[in-house]
Design a protein around this nucleic acid. Structure first.
Lengths: 194, 194
DNA sequence: AACAACATGTAACCGGTTACATGATTGA
DNA sequence: TCAATCATGTAACCGGTTACATGTTGTT
């Protein structure tokens, strides 16, 4: 009902995408996001449950109470309209990549090489940590029938490795520059001015 | 006044950082953000002006109406408390890198190799475009006394080049896989089943 | 008995963008 | 004189997170 093609919210995109594979509850969606798209597309309970209700009202998904012997839960499945909406989004131009990189901002503003090196080292540690978390979920991605979840994960692994190496090289460069500055013009009394 | 060390908002971080170099108006801050930190740290007028007011009330910046022969504008400068607050943030652990990558989500969900390849191609185009925008602002970054703005820009250039190449390779792989599938088992009548 | 995990949902808050409103100045 | 740019600011909206509230089920 309502308006036929209001644009999908960020959370709607990941919900519909995951539901195409199989019906799921909100709780399962959250768990799956955390083990799959999390590193480039997050979603919290506080966004998933209300969005499921909206999608249900828009009839892009249909929820049925699964009151089997199991716990109470609502299993949502994609409707035909939901499938069409998902496909339409998939064929549309993607929004440009967005970054929010606090370590890089600290680096940008660093007043001394020492601080710049520290920012790069902190950033390298973050990339290493994110790489490790991706490694953990690799087995699950590899078990899927479709290849793209694993390839997306591989992109993440390669990306974080690239970033980690860049930052480590930069930190080393800054450290060695600082060393040579410290040892060369020891007495700046009559040091050459360039 | 108020509480002595409430954490800085994202917009506050970039404002204080930029003001350390020289006093500026909100308008100039916005322009400078667009020509420097934009690719990893955005800020809009709607966030800058209110934040300047808050920072002013917290006495981390001090604004003076510059009513010279010029246009009316408010020049903000960093106070000592602002400088301390900025330095404290710079030495703190950075928040992890955050990504929101719609093209990768489309790729992740792609039902066919054709769609996956299209997603990678769209992503490659985005990275090329962002790379080109960074190239444009390179001269300004190179003119700064401190080296880190140019190095941060170089990180951006290298990052987008890495991503563009990754996506192009992936798209080519998907296209050539599709070709071999199309030409090999032409008549699937008695084709070998694995 | 108590705790972890399952499961749904809401409320308060945060912090951003876009669009709007206003008006001065500069240059074509 | 008309448009672009300079310059500040607000309001409406969007969409997220965190914390809270509630209750069940399975495990130790």
């Amino acid at each position: 009902m309502s308006d036929p093609a209001s644009p999908l919210s960020p959370t709607a995109k990941v919900i519909l995408g995951l539901l195409r594979a199989e019906p799921m509850s909100g709780y399962e969606i959250k768990q799956l996001v955390d083990r799959s798209t999390r590193f480039f597309w997050t979603a919290s309970f506080g966004s998933i449950y209300p969005e499921l209700k909206r999608l249900s009202e828009a009839e892009l998904v249909a929820g049925t109470e699964a009151a089997d012997g199991d716990r109470r839960q609502i299993l949502y499945e994609l409707t035909d309209a939901g499938e069409r909406s998902l496909t339409e989004w998939e064929r549309s131009d993607p929004a440009p990549l967005e970054l929010r990189d606090e370590a890089l901002l600290q680096f940008f503003f660093a007043a001394e090489p020492e601080l710049a090196a520290e920012a790069m080292e902190a950033k390298a540690i973050d990339h290493a940590a994110q790489h490790a978390r991706l490694q953990e979920i690799a087995p699950e991605a590899a078990s899927k029938e479709r290849p793209t979840p694993l390839r997306a994960l591989q992109f993440g692994l390669d990306l974080h490795e690239f970033c980690r190496e860049w930052c480590e090289r930069e930190a080393e460069r800054l450290r060695s520059d600082a060393d040579s500055v410290r040892s060369e013009p020891a007495e700046p009394a009559e040091a050459p001015k360039d």
